[in-house]
């Protein structure tokens, strides 16, 4: 409303860059309880459906010479598998299913969010914070279980001069606790920023004179957003792997 009032002042342009992120109940106007099916539910379940289609229905042929869809599933699997193995080593492969879950969920939530009229679940801090906190808590607990007190050596930089080590330890400790914040806000911010910018360009399309430029800008932004959707999924996953590596081998 406030934005609309603002828009009225600037002569007919209506900016609602954030309206696309509103959580609404799917049926009726009822209150949003924790169990209410909302548009969040719809798009989360669509992501689940797409993952099911790709990884279960697409590979049901178990073809030796893969079909196109099976090939995509195999490539995704191979990429994440190689990433986990390269970054965390052989003993990190135990956690591959969870990392693969994260990657698939973020990738498809991002990509589904790019459909027109859709809802980007990953643009919400609530969603990405849960993902990042799960990784953070899981990795920290795992580090203590696997290494005991040696896990704290992560903060005690052996290669630095002794005088510097306490300072470095404080910095490392802070950066360790900032991890979930940056991890979650990076994803949500990227997705939100791109969608909001597209919305702003779309609002400019109301003026006939600059509509072509606006549409071109939307096309360009959309291409960039597709790239960002994939890269953010990749980055989230590889950072998860890096944190996992820190928990498994804190010495280096």
């Amino acid at each position: 409303m406030a934005t609309q009032a603002h828009g009225e002042e600037t002569g007919g342009l209506v900016f609602h860059p954030m309206d696309q992120f509103i959580v609404k109940p799917l049926f009726g106007d009822g209150p949003i309880h924790w169990y209410t099916p909302t548009n969040v539910t719809l798009w989360l379940m669509l992501a689940v459906l797409v993952i099911w289609l790709l990884f279960v229905a697409g590979t049901s042929g178990r073809a030796l010479i893969p079909t196109r869809i099976q090939s995509m599933a195999e490539l995704t699997y191979g990429m994440v598998h190689k990433m986990v193995e390269d970054v965390t080593g052989k003993d990190g492969l135990k956690y591959f299913p969870y990392v693969f879950t994260l990657f698939c969920f973020i990738l498809f939530a991002n990509l589904l969010g790019l459909l027109p009229k859709s809802f980007s679940t990953t643009s919400h801090i609530a969603v990405t914070a849960v993902l990042a906190l799960a990784v953070f808590l899981g990795v920290t607990i795992l580090g203590f279980i696997k290494n005991g007190a040696h896990f704290l050596e992560l903060f005690w930089v052996k290669s630095a001069p002794l005088a510097l080590r306490p300072v470095l330890a404080i910095i490392e400790l802070i950066s360790y606790f900032v991890r979930p914040v940056s991890h979650s806000i990076r994803l949500a911010g990227n997705v939100m920023a791109g969608h909001a910018v597209i919305k702003v360009f779309a609002a400019f399309a109301a003026i006939a004179a600059i509509a072509p430029i606006s549409i071109l800008a939307i096309v360009g932004m959309y291409g960039l957003e597709v790239l960002v959707a994939v890269i953010q999924a990749y980055v989230f996953t590889i950072l998860t792997c890096v944190y996992l590596k820190d928990a498994l081998h804190p010495a280096h």
């Binding site: 806000i185 990227n190 920023a193 990749y234 980055v235 590889i238 950072l239 890096v242």
Partner: peptide, 27 residues
């Protein structure tokens, strides 16, 4: 390439933070 993407993500995250500050101020 993995290091490249990690580096880019770290650099970009700070820009996203400032964007977030702008959004918070606006909305």
């Amino acid at each position: 390439t993995a290091t490249l993407f990690i580096g880019m993500a770290f650099a970009e995250a700070l820009g996203i933070f400032s964007f977030l500050v702008a959004l918070l101020l606006l909305f």
